[in-house]
Amino acid sequence: MSLGYLERGYLEKDELPPFPSEERLKKRAVAYIECPQPIPCSPCFESCPSNAIEMKNINDPPKVDYEKCTGCMKCIRVCPGLAIFMLRLRDDGMGEVTLQYEFLPWLKKGDRVKLYNRKGEEVGEGVVNWVLPPERNDNTSLVRVEVPAELIFEVRAVKPVR
């Protein structure tokens, strides 16, 4: 069994969960869960109203059925591991990544942000086009950023442009 990601602290391409189809990504946002390790944790599974998350027991890593996922964002609101990302491809050739954000200053719609990949390398700049304010989710804000389409499987963190 490869434990490569446990030496590095990030997932390499071949360790990522299967990608949703382009067609599905274009329909509406879909939950993409980067949680490969068996840990005793199940709030995403318990919060999913459409049974799109499969988990055999509390230690089983979650698997998302992308066709069943409605993009309702219930799971990303509760994930304590900050491991869920909502991904979407728009018709205008741009992509969108929604992630959990717990830092000051809080981000607002229209803010420009620097984009970072899983290793913490800067991969570009993007614009926040929607937020769930922190007070509505026990101080975990949800931030949706507009990114180039090819970066939706890359961008995993944002920091405000100063």
Partner: peptide, 9 residues
């Protein structure tokens, strides 16, 4: 791993 990933990124 998820705790490591969130500081690594």
């Amino acid at each position: 791993f998820v705790h490591a990933a969130k500081v690594r990124r």
